[in-house]
């Protein structure tokens, strides 16, 4: 069995894994990071989205061996009260919450590339994340709100 070394949410892990083990199952079943759910078999739903070396990936479609030597951030790795988490709460951007961890990670990835996305750009950026409850309206609002908040310190620095 190949041995992998990964950094997940700031801690290092070294484990022997079967090559066929999916990254999402490694995170959930081996590391106990059950914040990342699985929603489909087809790489479509995005519920399992995490960041790998800073870029969003669907962790059901990456093998654990492929994460060897890389850095993974799951929704559990966000600091408590992260602006994106707060915005999802305040804008009522979830109902059952199944899609939420993936939505939050994909939204953070989106803001990394585009700090002030329009409504259309948010819908485009979250194209790979499906929500069966909310109808997306409040998700888009939450991302707009988080974007405003996350830009704030930088713009204050510029003006002061």
């Amino acid at each position: 069995m190949p041995r992998i070394r990964v950094e997940v949410d700031g801690s290092s892990y070294e484990d022997d894994v079967e090559p066929r083990l999916l990254l999402v199952h490694y995170l959930r079943d081996r590391l106990g990071k059950v914040g990342t759910p699985v929603g489909c078999d087809t790489t479509n739903c995005g519920a399992c989205t995490v960041l790998m070396d800073g870029l969003s990936v669907k962790s059901c479609s990456v093998l654990a061996v492929q994460a060897d030597g890389r850095e993974v951030t799951t929704v559990e790795g966000l600091r408590a009260g992260h602006p994106m988490q707060r915005a999802f709460h305040e804008e009522h951007a979830l109902q059952c919450g199944y899609c939420t961890p993936g939505m939050i990670m994909a939204s953070i990835d989106l803001l990394r590339e585009n700090a002030d996305p329009s409504e259309d750009e948010i819908r485009d950026g979250l194209e790979g994340n499906l929500c069966r409850c909310t109808g997306y309206q409040n998700i888009v609002r939450a991302v707009r709100r988080a974007a405003t908040e996350m830009r704030r310190p930088a713009s204050e620095e510029v003006t002061s």
Partner: peptide
């Protein structure tokens, strides 16, 4: 093609 996460890989 696809969506951002798929395009990353």
């Amino acid at each position: 093609v696809a969506d951002p996460a798929v395009r990353h890989r």
